[in-house]
Amino acid sequence: MKKASKYIYLTLMMIFLYAPILVLIIFSFNTTKSHSVMSGFSFKWYQQLFRDSAIMSSLMSTVIVAIISSIVSTVLGTFAALGINSMKKLPRSATLGVNNIPMINPEIVTGVSLMLLFVFFAARMNFKMGYATLIIAHITFDTPYVILNIMPKFRQMDKNLLDAAADLGCTPMQTFFKVTLPEILPGVLSGFLMAFTYSLDDFVVSYFVSGDTVQTLPIKIYSMTRRQVSPKINALSTLIFAVVVIVLIGKNIVEIKREKKLNKYKLHRRGEI
């Protein structure tokens, strides 16, 4: 492909991908509530953001739900992956098949089906939809991603290590904590992070199972989009976005540095340096 056309294409794609993001960020500094006319620069929405108790409490609910459900699904998923890994072919593919359902099924169907389940039980057991149902729903769609992140690590693991641990006198419990867990840990961590971010960002499923007592941030934003989104929300998203950018850039730099070291080491081993 010609160089110039390549860069023109990349630029156009970047404009497309970032136009809405830029608009959101720019209008968080507006002096008025308008989302299309910039009338001046100010930080007033950032100041008002922290005094808005409704937004702050919905942010809190979102974080609480995301933390609890990602931790529970990480534990549930890690043990599940351990079990699935030692299953025979048929139960293994059946379990993984069910694991795929929440990922393949449209979110709205997941949300509606859980809502029907909760409504069914709520009527009989006298409880209301709220934190509990939100967390249950989030665990349900988080866990498959945890398992998906851990399974490849089991495949990469040297099976002889487990035998060696047993030979050296480890109980199955010790083997798990001293050998298996350290080996699969990168998968567990990336699974946890994925679960956490999915929880943080989920709207559709939460919308159906949250009842009317708890509002997560996406639900709060949705209720605003029907009238007008307050620039305070722009300010909050800009802050969240900035944190993510800093974290990701940091992670990228660390990875590139590590890669460079690794390459140097490889060249060294081959006697090329």
Partner: peptide, 21 residues
């Protein structure tokens, strides 16, 4: 121990994925 490790998860998925469908 390994055999039952996936049991809580399977139970969870049965109740909150299969039954709702």
């Amino acid at each position: 121990m390994k055999k039952i490790a996936a049991a809580p998860y399977q139970l969870w998925m049965a109740i909150f994925v299969i039954v709702p469908l």
